[in-house]
Amino acid sequence: MSEAHGARRHDPHQGSPAAEPAPKIVADRLHKRFPAAGEPVVALEELSLTVAEGELVSVVGPSGCGKTTFLRLLAGLEEPTSGSLAIRASDDGAQRPQNAVVFQEYGIFPWKTVLQNVAFGLQMRGVARREREEQAQAWVERVGLARFAGAYPHELSGGMKQRVSIARALANDPEVLLMDEPLGALDAQTRTVMQEEILDLWERDQKTVVYITHSIDEAVFLSDRVVVMTAHPGRKKAEHAIDLPRPRRWEQTGGADFAALRLQIWSDLEDEVKRTMAGQA
């Protein structure tokens, strides 16, 4: 399967992202207001973003900047107050769900085994039992959990749970993969390992990914492009293309080019974080 997609693989080093034919995701002037007592809360304002096929775009911003709201709009879990949002279907004619979300707290069902969890999306789409279990089994093996296929989540560590959650999303073969701070709840070492695993999976699978994180390091390490958002209301402040060579390895994160990008993004973000903290004080 991955070979078939190989040709379509977007590579930021062979031409600029803007040259891609039709973008995968087009978000155009998205607004989201939540009703509240008194003034409605404006979570997103004038947010426009296009993501190319096979691109991995990270969104960073201070907490409460609406990045999760943006992801929930992309996921169809919320409706935008105004603006438009489109995810282009693949042209290979295959029936795919539009998106699948990897949630921060994993959201894997404690009452289902690892295999049943991974097969969940397929089951909801009515894929026959044997077929969905075969596909799920393949994904369970790919994320290195073959030994735990029949285990229940409470027997797994945090990193393993997040692997289940990622396998569940990928087994559903969505048009785009949406990840909402998927490693936020993990310890630093597990995070590092999981970041490399996510890169491996992505490099083989060529999914279009929108990745929400509050970690600049993570964003730079994983992404083709990093979007910085402002605080209250959430707006796009800046975009940074990450033209570091791939495949990337964690050792590179100590390099000068990596440090320069990190600094650039931080200089954009710093004001926003300070503004958020001042607002909270």
Binding site: A75, L77, P97, V101, G107, F120, R125
Partner: peptide
């Protein structure tokens, strides 16, 4: 979150 997952996976 489980309701979100269910909705997101088209239940």
């Amino acid at each position: 979150i489980f309701l979100d997952v269910g909705a997101n996976y088209g239940a």
